[in-house]
């Protein structure tokens, strides 16, 4: 049995083997998007909602997503991108549930235009209400431990702390905070969302014990998105494998790896 099929994680009753959640925006063509989805092996792809007049130029991307989802048996995760208040986010989540026929929602409530940092207060308010309404809330949040705990208390089944600002490609800017979250919330599904730019960033997140990563721009903006999706898939599998195998503890000093008994030189030291 392969690692992918034997090592699973869950969102509620849904069992997943892929630890790669993929965004669908910014691809050069529907075909490239479809091929990237296949190459990624993802079982969860994110989608959005847009006003009909503004969405006139979709050019078949959504149809391609639906086709790939059917072929791979994967799920859609609609988001509330662009929301600035809890009220907006709740309204958009309700519309997303109707449009995509899923209770899953990636809850985004942004509090700063420059960094697109999540607003922890509006996020918690929206999450609380949506959980009451039966949603499965995937909150895009900061790496602040206390606000993360509040989201869990509100009924979120998992957390999606940022690695870096959305689309920045800077990787895991605060490994200490992310490690702290992992250590303090050992039984919580944790997904690094946003800021991942290279497969090594994703591998590091998995090596730290994160359950999955969600990314978009790093694949969509690659010179070859399909090859990059494959590269991320391999890195994520490697990172997860390393976590399960147990990464060695760091040492402050050199520790000889070759077992040497006595003097390794036949001639001994010079006279």
């Amino acid at each position: 049995m392969t690692q992918a099929s034997s090592d699973t994680w869950q969102v509620g009753d849904v069992v997943l083997s892929s630890r790669f959640l993929l965004g669908t925006a910014g691809y050069p063509s529907p075909q490239v998007l479809g091929d990237a989805i296949v190459a990624s092996g993802t079982q969860v792809v994110t989608v959005g909602l847009k006003r009909t007049l503004a969405a006139a130029g979709d050019n078949g991307h959504v149809a391609m997503i639906r086709r790939c989802m059917q072929q791979q048996g994967a799920r859609l995760l609609p988001n509330t991108a662009g929301c600035r208040t809890a009220r907006e986010a709740v309204q958009l989540a309700q519309m997303a549930r109707e449009l995509y026929d899923t209770p899953w929602i990636k809850l985004e409530v942004v509090g700063d235009e420059h960094t697109l940092q999540p607003d922890p207060f509006e996020l918690l308010q929206a999450a609380t209400q949506l959980v009451r309404e039966g949603f499965t809330v995937f909150p895009y949040c900061t790496d602040d431990l206390v606000s993360c705990r509040r989201l869990l208390d509100a009924g979120c089944p998992l957390l999606m702390p940022w690695g870096a600002p959305i689309g920045s490609g800077q990787g895991l800017l605060n490994p200490f905070a992310l490690r702290t979250l992992r250590e303090r919330l050992p039984d919580t599904v944790l997904i690094v969302d946003a800021g991942i730019g290279a497969p090594s960033h994703a591998a590091l997140a998995l090596e730290m014990g994160y359950d999955a990563v969600l990314l978009n721009s790093a694949v969509a903006q690659a010179r070859n998105p399909v090859a990059m999706a494959q590269a991320f898939r391999l890195a994520i599998e490697a990172g997860r494998g390393a976590w399960r195998a147990g990464v060695m503890a760091k040492q402050d000093f050199a520790v000889a790896s070759t077992p040497v008994g006595g003097d390794p030189f036949l001639l001994g030291p010079a006279a």
């Binding site: 925006a25 998007l33 994110t46 959005g48 909602l49 979709d58 991307h61 995509y100 959305i166 721009s217």
Partner: peptide
């Protein structure tokens, strides 16, 4: 009145 439809997203 606002109408929304599916779109790609991250």
């Amino acid at each position: 009145v606002l109408l929304f439809q599916p779109i790609v997203g991250g």
